[in-house]
């Protein structure tokens, strides 16, 4: 049995004490050790983006970080987006605009968009497309994802104002 390291992760504001091998990716730690299976693995080499989570507010690939590197960081995953049954504006917009089909890429797209919109709520259409080109979706053809994120951005801006 390879050596494990005891770490504490802060995920969605909750503390998780886990014992993990250094080689375990943050995605695997979230899924298997924290039981947060909303973060998905589609490629494990940083291209598809299904595992995108926020680390200290920035969207990153959870398959390209080791769990041990995430200690002391504020991690946010899809499970932390909704407030109970009240959906986040992005979740709501994805639902109302059919921004998902099989749903496998959805958590990654949501976290990508949350991070990007929190950094810059007033992205141009071109910037938005560019950011959303970071993740792959095989079902929707993207147009409803782009539309949902644009509408959610409007709502998030309105809420801030």
């Amino acid at each position: 049995m390879p050596d494990k390291i005891a770490i504490t992760l802060d995920v969605n504001g909750k503390s998780y004490d886990v014992n993990v091998e250094p080689r375990r990716s943050l995605a695997d730690v979230l899924r298997e050790d924290c039981g947060l299976t909303g973060t998905h693995l589609g490629c494990e080499h940083g291209v598809c983006g299904a595992c995108t989570v926020l680390v200290d507010g920035r969207p990153v690939r959870a398959c390209l970080m080791f769990g041990v590197q995430a200690e002391g960081k504020a991690i946010r995953t899809v499970e932390g987006l909704a407030d109970g049954d009240v959906l986040h504006p992005l979740q709501k917009a994805f639902w109302e605009n059919h921004g998902l089909q099989c749903g496998f890429c959805t958590p990654g797209f949501l976290m990508l968009a949350v991070g990007a919109l929190e950094e810059n709520p007033a992205m141009s259409e071109a910037e938005l497309r560019d950011v959303l080109s970071s993740n792959l979706c095989r079902c929707t053809g993207y147009q409803n994802i782009v539309k949902a994120v644009r509408l959610a951005a409007d709502e998030m801006r309105a809420r801030r104002a």
């Binding site: 899924r31 299976t37 909303g38 995953t77 899809v78 959906l87 639902w95 998902l100 958590p107």
Partner: peptide, 24 residues
């Protein structure tokens, strides 16, 4: 009618139920 899908709330909340989620 363009009824929003009944499948979606669980998927949007990260409560989908894919095969890898059964491996525990």
């Amino acid at each position: 009618r363009s009824l929003p899908r009944l499948e979606d709330p669980a998927l949007l909340k990260g409560r989908g139920n894919y095969v890898a989620d059964h491996a525990k």
